[in-house]
Amino acid sequence: MEPIIQESELPETPEPEATRRDAGVTESSRANRGWWDRNADDYQVEHGTFLGDDRFVWGPEGLDEVEAELLGPPEELAGKDILEIGAGAAQCSRWLASQGARPVALDLSHRQLQHALRIGGGVPLVEADAGALPFADGSFDLACSAYGALPFVADPVRVLKDVHRVLRPGGRFVFSVTHPMRWAFPDEPGPEGLSVAASYFDRTPYVEQDDQGNAVYVEHHRTIGDRVRDVVAGGFRLVDLVEPEWPAWNTQEWGGWSPLRGNLIPGSAIFVCVRD
């Protein structure tokens, strides 16, 4: 059993340099595993109250699966085998278990999964890369990913094909990512984040790197069209694309997300896909 986490035990690192450059599959995976291991404690402290211990929230807008029903009506989740990819502290999986489902929470980051153990709930946890899922073909009825994996991988089709493989026929995969439109704007919650600053069509990854040029965080941009083509190339049929509006009750800022921006431009995109 992993020890209960009281505070960060990981060493601090110098402030990285932010740039735009190419980053491949291996570099992206290594960098993001390290970033989430170093930052999981702060992330859970900062966002844990909003995420809850057993809520299923699709993104910073606060769209809740209990209302959205993107995986299907809650009463139909009972008995379903469900894979959560990029689960973090497994909040979504814990909610799924409360509905009678049989979730498995997968994450690349060991530290994030330690937080899942700290919160508890008995959800099975798996530490693995989303592009190499350690499950047999047809293991799951449903799969989901709330801002997990897809924004951070260099080859999203590889991930989608592997999710397709582990789903049973008729299975649904629902995933949320930063809305591609946001890449044209500065990642700022205030008025400075409302003016176009870059080309929407520039797919060059955002990379934070150390003083030796090694990537320590990578995020990949895909246009809406790219995402749709990726879904199809992965073998899925896209049945819905949800762009959550910012609700009046949500007054928080989360990175570049805020009520100001959220009332004017979309912040998240949720792709609802079916394996025929």
Results as ranks from 00 to 15, higher is better:
227 R>G: 00
1 M>I: 05
45 V>C: 12
207 V>F: 13
275 R>D: 07
107 D>I: 10
69 E>L: 04
7 E>W: 06
107 D>L: 01
249 W>L: 01
262 G>F: 04
188 E>P: 00
212 Q>A: 11
89 A>F: 08
75 E>M: 12
84 E>Y: 05
246 W>T: 12
178 T>Q: 10
234 G>C: 03
160 L>G: 04
141 D>F: 00
14 P>Q: 13
263 N>S: 15
66 V>G: 11
160 L>S: 01
123 V>K: 10
105 A>V: 05
248 A>N: 14
58 W>P: 08
126 V>Q: 00
53 D>P: 01
37 D>T: 02
154 A>N: 01
79 G>K: 03
66 V>R: 15
147 Y>T: 03
61 E>W: 08
107 D>P: 06
98 S>Y: 02
39 N>W: 10
18 A>L: 07
77 L>H: 03
107 D>F: 05
85 I>V: 15
239 V>M: 05
99 Q>K: 15
51 L>T: 02
97 A>G: 09
143 A>K: 00
162 D>P: 04
51 L>V: 09
173 F>E: 01
182 R>E: 08
263 N>K: 09
145 S>W: 05
93 S>P: 07
134 P>R: 00
10 L>R: 15
109 S>L: 11
170 G>S: 12
236 F>N: 06
75 E>L: 02
207 V>R: 12
274 V>Q: 15
57 V>H: 00
3 P>T: 06
